[in-house]
């Protein structure tokens, strides 16, 4: 597939749009279908596409395996950390009302809380999907 100009250029053009779309899906998840899970998978798919077209090495130079593995762990930490932060602010674990900047409108905190935990979900799902893909693809390359 190394010689396919159309595939290479096509992938190069598509990838930034897929990544932007993933971020849109994440941040617009409150108003339309979408959220951390979908965004993480779409983001991972963008890098899987690049790896399929340009080869695993090129993508791993941009996105090294240790980075995605750290991502997978960091997402869980972000999620749990939001819970701990709300506890430190004097509310229940994951009680997002604590995050409101203005205490008279406590429900605004829900908005920030949801975005933050969804960010944790996004980071984990992205890290997991890409690192699993790396492992599988690395095996295939070694076997050949």
């Amino acid at each position: 597939m190394r010689e396919e100009v159309i595939v290479r250029v096509g992938a190069k053009v598509l990838a930034p749009f897929i990544i932007t779309f993933a971020l849109y899906v994440h941040f617009h998840g409150d108003y339309s279908p979408g959220g951390g899970f979908q965004a993480g998978v779409i983001l991972a798919a963008a890098f899987a596409l690049l790896a399929l077209v340009y080869g695993l090495d090129e993508v791993q130079r941009v996105l090294p395996p240790w980075f995605v593995q750290t991502c997978a762990a960091m997402g869980v930490v972000i999620y749990a950390g939001v819970g701990v932060a709300t506890m430190l602010l004097g509310h229940n674990y994951l009680g997002y009302n604590a995050l409101a900047p203005d205490p008279t409108h406590a429900e605004h905190g829900q908005h920030y809380g949801i975005l933050l935990v969804e960010l944790g979900v996004l980071v984990t799902v992205f890290g997991v999907m890409v690192s699993v893909f790396y492992l599988f693809a690395g095996r295939v390359r070694k076997a050949q």
Partner: peptide, 17 residues
């Protein structure tokens, strides 16, 4: 209670956090 229109998101991340 949550203030966002997508009920699936609010249930996912808040009620069932």
């Amino acid at each position: 209670e949550i203030g966002i229109p997508n009920v699936v998101t609010s249930v996912l991340a808040s009620y069932r956090g």
